[in-house]
Nucleic acid binder design. Structure first.
Lengths: 152, 152
DNA sequence: TTCGATTTGTAGCCTCGGCTACAATTAGGC
DNA sequence: GCCTAATTGTAGCCGAGGCTACAAATCGAA
């Protein structure tokens, strides 16, 4: 059944079938989800090193609410991706790439919380929701948030 | 399923160590992610039935940008969860529960897009980001959005 | 009606991110 | 210094959600 012709308001890649646009959005959301966990770990490891002096797997696990085995497995993934390093039975450290990821994740997190609060979301709800939202906020949207908050 | 907080596998804050709060937030984000796919499917199926008269697996797959096999497998999960029905080689339909989920997902999606646009995010970026964000917006935050947009 | 193209479904494989159970190592109390 | 407790790491299981390849059913045209 041929559907009626739609029109696009946005240029980008010339003339794709209309549903490709939608598919592209879902794909974006999926890839964002794939990096979400890495961002959470990087941010947390950075925090722990800053406040505790070191980032130990059990602390990471407790903070994230997962078993230590899960945390260690995820840390292994961070290492595979070149974001962290660690030696056997020693703490975890971030590579420069990991630090950068953590810094950007933290900045994004704060901006999202502040934006939510600014539009009237209660602080606690903002903190909770931001945890899931932050990974899906594009740079463009982030800039708009900063502008809205008067930090352009 | 709705994110009812009536049953709690996780204790409330206040009488817990400080890091439990953080763990609780991460857990919320994880469970939200678990229902995200179901919401996307329900919303899309509802849309397709509305605009095309039927929801066929291949159309669903194309819109979501996944293989038809993946779509069919996910549809099977929707059926397991009591959100959809289908007979062999026939289209997919939503149960009342599925319809409800779709309706709420769509309303939330629109509210998120509108809120983003209202704070200055370009339309196209808002559409893209909302796809990932919508699943992590709590009812409380949603109400704040509605109030902000003057639709309280 | 028959036959090929399309659609739908099945089988099997992969990675990821949970988990428990168990093993190895380190750290602390005595 | 030694022995126990805590920590760290490993193995193996599970389900979710991707994929390809193949099989079965339906549709449509000749």
């Amino acid at each position: 059944m041929p559907k009626s012709k739609s029109y696009k308001l946005v240029a980008e890649p010339a003339d794709l079938p209309p549903e490709a646009d939608q598919a592209h959005r879902f794909e974006k959301a999926r890839t964002a989800q794939a990096t979400a966990l890495l961002e959470d770990y990087a941010e947390l490891i950075s925090d722990l090193i800053g406040t505790e002096g070191e980032a130990r797997p059990t602390d990471i696990a407790r903070r994230l609410g997962v078993s230590h085995a899960t945390a260690i497995k995820s840390i292994a993934r961070l290492k595979r991706e070149g974001l962290a390093t660690s030696k056997l039975y020693r703490g975890v450290f971030l590579t420069p790439a990991g630090e950068m990821l953590a810094r950007r994740a933290r900045a994004r997190h704060r901006l999202v919380v502040d934006l939510l609060v600014a539009v009237g979301v209660p602080q606690e709800a903002a903190e909770v929701d931001a945890e899931g939202i932050e990974h899906h906020v594009s740079d463009e949207t982030l800039r708009a948030f900063a502008t809205y908050l008067g930090r352009a």
